Amino acid sequence: MPVLGLIFFSTQQTGALWSDTENIAEGQSITSGTLDIAVGAGGTTQASYPFTALAKSGMTPGAFAQAPLTVRNSGNVAMRYRLQNANQSNPAVPLTLTVSTVPNEAACPATGNPSGATQLYSGAMVGAQVPQLRALAPGASEVLCMRGTLDSSAAPNTSTTATFTFAAEVG
């Protein structure tokens, strides 16, 4: 009997203004830059990206939904980023999140284990956070393999949506 009606995921990037103060001597110049994180195959920089590739219906306990998510430095300064938080619309649906880096999107199939994966996080979906910052040069990208697994204690006929928030800083 299916337990979960639908899991829909989205990603969000946080935005911030940043500044610094420095004394400039005569003859020196000032250079500015752009810090911008983008997600998805198209590298969208919109505040909210509907990560529909991770949506799945009719899940039973132990089943998972898995999909690649490309993170791109679309700015012109080096950056460091991380998964800052994950929330669910219905936290009573127990999900485990596993986040790994993989060499490319094909290495994160919808079924089976990811290939060439380096695990960054595995634990509860709600409040998930990758502790270490990941470095990306301007124009560079990295593929994350995102897996949501339905725990065995899930109640029948329940559903949830999840939101992932990413943070970036100059690095």
Results as ranks from 00 to 15, higher is better:
Glu22Phe: 06
Asn23Cys: 03
Asn23Val: 14
Asn23Asp: 09
Asn23Arg: 14
Glu26Ser: 13
Glu26Leu: 11
Gly27His: 07
Gly27Gln: 04
Gly27Ser: 09
Ser29Ala: 13
Ile30Arg: 08
Ile30Glu: 10
Thr31Leu: 11
Thr34Lys: 11
Thr34Tyr: 04
Thr34Asp: 04
Leu35Arg: 15
Leu35Gly: 05
Asp36Arg: 15
Ala38Asn: 03
Ala38Cys: 06
Ala38Ser: 12
Ala41Tyr: 00
Ala41Met: 04
Gly43Arg: 04
Gly43Thr: 08
Thr44Cys: 01
Thr44Val: 07
Thr45Ile: 10
Ala47Asn: 08
Ser48Ala: 13
Tyr49Asp: 08
Pro50Gln: 12
Thr52Gln: 11
Leu54Asn: 07
Leu54Gly: 06
Ala55Arg: 13
Lys56Asp: 05
Ser57Phe: 05
Gly58Phe: 02
Thr60Phe: 09
Gly62Phe: 13
Ala63Glu: 14
Ala63Gly: 09
Phe64Asp: 00
Phe64Arg: 05
Gln66Ile: 00
Gln66His: 03
Gln66Val: 00
Arg72Ile: 14
Asn73Asp: 03
Asn73His: 05
Asn73Val: 10
Ser74Ile: 01
Ser74Arg: 12
Gly75Trp: 13
Asn76Trp: 12
Ala78Gln: 11
Ala78Asp: 12
Met79Ile: 15
Asn85Val: 01
Asn85Ser: 14
Asn85Gly: 06
Ser89Phe: 10
Ala92Asn: 14
Ala92Trp: 10
Val93Gln: 10
Val93Tyr: 14
Pro94Thr: 09
Pro94Ile: 09
Leu95Pro: 00
Thr96Val: 10
Leu97Arg: 05
Thr98Met: 03
Thr98Cys: 00
Thr98Ser: 11
Ser100Trp: 06
Ser100Phe: 05
Val102Glu: 03
Val102Asp: 02
Asn104Ser: 12
Ala106Gln: 10
Ala106Met: 02
Ala107Arg: 08
Ala107Cys: 08
Ala107Met: 08
Cys108Arg: 02
Cys108Ser: 01
Cys108Asp: 01
Cys108Val: 08
Ala110Lys: 08
Ala110Phe: 06
Ala110Leu: 09
Thr111Met: 07
Gly112Gln: 06
Asn113Thr: 15
Pro114Arg: 05
Pro114His: 09
Gly116Lys: 06
Ala117Trp: 07
Thr118Phe: 10
Leu120Trp: 13
Tyr121Ile: 03
Gly123Thr: 06
Ala124Ile: 12
Val126Arg: 09
Ala128Gln: 08
Ala128Pro: 14
Gln129Asp: 13
Gln129Ile: 01
Gln129Phe: 15
Gln132Val: 07
Gln132Arg: 11
Leu133Met: 09
Arg134Phe: 04
Arg134Gln: 15
Ala135Trp: 07
Leu136Asp: 01
Ala137Gln: 14
Pro138Asn: 01
Val143Gln: 04
Val143Ile: 12
Val143Gly: 02
Leu144Gln: 04
